Deep mutational scan, measured.
Amino acid sequence: ETWTVFRRYSRFREMHKTLKLKYAELAALEFPPKKLFGNKDERVIAERRSHLEKYLRDFFS
């Protein structure tokens, strides 16, 4: 099953920080790092999307 969620990266990062405070075991999940430069580059966006998808798969498993 596939879901499509339209949210900004910052909202996922905020969710991760909030949940990590409540559920300490989530700290073990690696959240994709923020890029200061090149964040509009298609390659960077695709890489971030891939890392975010892995994070979410790990989160829900």
Rank of each mutant, 00 (worst) to 15 (best):
R57G: 05
N39A: 13
S61F: 00
F12A: 06
R49F: 10
T4M: 09
E47L: 06
Y9A: 08
Y23I: 10
G38I: 05
L26T: 00
P32S: 13
R49L: 14
L52Y: 00
I45T: 13
Y55R: 15
K35S: 08
T2C: 03
S10P: 12
L52Q: 00
H16Q: 07
R7N: 08
E30W: 15
V44R: 12
K20R: 07
E42R: 12
L52S: 02
R11H: 08
R49Q: 07
P33L: 15
H16D: 01
F60M: 06
E25T: 03
F37R: 05
K22E: 01
L19K: 00
R49T: 05
R13Q: 04
D58Q: 08
Y23V: 15
K54Y: 15
R43T: 10
E30S: 13
T18F: 13
H51R: 13
P33H: 12
E53S: 15
E53T: 15
K35C: 02
S10N: 03
R13L: 08
R13M: 08
T2P: 11
S10I: 06
T4C: 12
Y23E: 00
E47I: 07
W3P: 00
V44I: 04
E53C: 15
L21P: 00
H16R: 09
E42Y: 06
E14I: 00
F59K: 07
K35W: 12
E47G: 14
F12G: 02
F12Y: 03
R8F: 02
K54Q: 04
T2Q: 03
E42L: 13
D58R: 13
T4K: 08
V44L: 07
A46F: 06
L21W: 02
S10L: 10
K54F: 02
W3M: 06
A28F: 08
Y23A: 11
R57F: 05
R48Q: 05
F12E: 00
L19D: 00
E42P: 05
F31N: 01
A46Y: 06
E53H: 11
V44Y: 07
V44S: 15
F37D: 07
S61E: 01
S50N: 11
Y9Q: 03
T4I: 06
R57C: 06
A28S: 08
H51I: 05
K35Y: 09
K17H: 02
L26R: 00
R57W: 03
E53F: 14
K54I: 05
T2N: 05
N39C: 07
V5H: 01
S50Q: 03
R43S: 14
Y9N: 12
E25F: 06
E14S: 06
Y9K: 09
P32G: 09
F37T: 02
W3C: 01
H16M: 15
A24P: 03
F31C: 02
V5G: 14
Y9L: 11
E25W: 10
Y23W: 13
F31E: 03
F6C: 01
R11F: 13
A27M: 14
Y55A: 10
S61Y: 01
P32E: 04
H51E: 04
H51N: 04
Y23S: 03
K35Q: 06
L26A: 02
T2R: 10
T4D: 13
Y9R: 06
R57Y: 04
V5F: 11
S10Q: 04
E25M: 04
R57K: 09
I45H: 12
F59S: 00
T18R: 06
T18A: 13
V44W: 12
I45Q: 13
D58E: 07
H51M: 04
A46E: 11
R13K: 12
K17D: 03
E47W: 10
N39Y: 05
F60S: 02
F60P: 01
P32K: 14
K35A: 07
R57N: 04
I45K: 14
F60Y: 06
K54H: 03
P33T: 10
R48H: 00
N39Q: 11
R49A: 07
S61L: 10
L21E: 15
D41N: 12
L29I: 15
E25D: 01
S50Y: 02
L52P: 13
L26P: 02
G38A: 07
K35I: 03
A46S: 13
E47P: 12
F60K: 02
R7F: 12
L36C: 01
R43C: 09
Y55N: 06
P32N: 14
L56R: 02
M15Q: 00
L21D: 12
Y23C: 13
H51K: 15
W3I: 02
K35H: 07
K35D: 01
R7Q: 13
R13G: 11
T2A: 01
R11D: 06
P32W: 15
A46V: 09
F6I: 09
K17S: 04
T4Y: 08
F59T: 03
F12M: 08
S50F: 08
A24R: 13
L19T: 01
R7E: 05
G38M: 03
F6Q: 04
F6N: 03
R13W: 07
L29Y: 05
R8D: 06
S61I: 12
R57L: 04
H51W: 09
H16S: 09
R11V: 14
P33G: 14
E30M: 15
V44K: 13
R7S: 13
F31L: 04
H16C: 10
L29E: 00
F12V: 11
D58Y: 15
K20V: 00
S61V: 10
N39K: 14
K34V: 11
L29D: 09
V5M: 12
F31Y: 05
G38S: 06
T18Y: 15
P33F: 15
L36P: 05
E14K: 08
K22C: 06
F37H: 02
E30G: 13
S10G: 09
L21F: 02
K17E: 05
V44Q: 11
L26V: 04
R8L: 15
L21A: 15
L19Q: 00
L36R: 02
F12C: 07
H51D: 01
A28L: 05
V5I: 09
T18W: 15
I45R: 12
N39W: 08
K35G: 08
F37W: 01
K20D: 00
F12L: 12
T18G: 06
R7P: 07
L56E: 00
L36V: 04
I45D: 11
K17L: 00
L21G: 10
D58M: 11
E47D: 13
S61K: 10
K20S: 04
K17P: 02
E53K: 15
L56S: 03
I45M: 11
R11M: 15
R7W: 11
D41W: 15
L21N: 05
E42I: 11
E30T: 12
E47A: 05
K35M: 04
Y23P: 00
L52F: 11
L29W: 14
V5S: 10
F31A: 02
L19F: 08
K54N: 08
A24V: 05
K22L: 12
F60E: 00
G38C: 03
D41P: 07
E53G: 15
H51S: 09
R8W: 10
K20Y: 00
P33M: 13
L26Y: 05
Y55S: 12
F6T: 05
A27L: 10
E14P: 02
R48W: 14
R11A: 14
D41E: 09
E25G: 04
S10M: 10
K17T: 03
H51L: 09
T4R: 06
S61G: 09
F59Q: 03
S61N: 06
T2K: 04
L29G: 06
L29F: 07
K40G: 06
A46P: 14
R48V: 09
A24F: 05
V5E: 03
T4L: 05
E30R: 10
L52A: 07
G38Y: 01
R43P: 10
R13T: 09
E25S: 06
M15E: 00
A24K: 11
I45W: 15
M15P: 00
R7H: 14
L36S: 02
W3S: 08
E30A: 13
F60I: 08
K20E: 00
K17F: 01
R13Y: 09
M15W: 14
H16E: 01
G38E: 07
L52M: 08
S10Y: 02
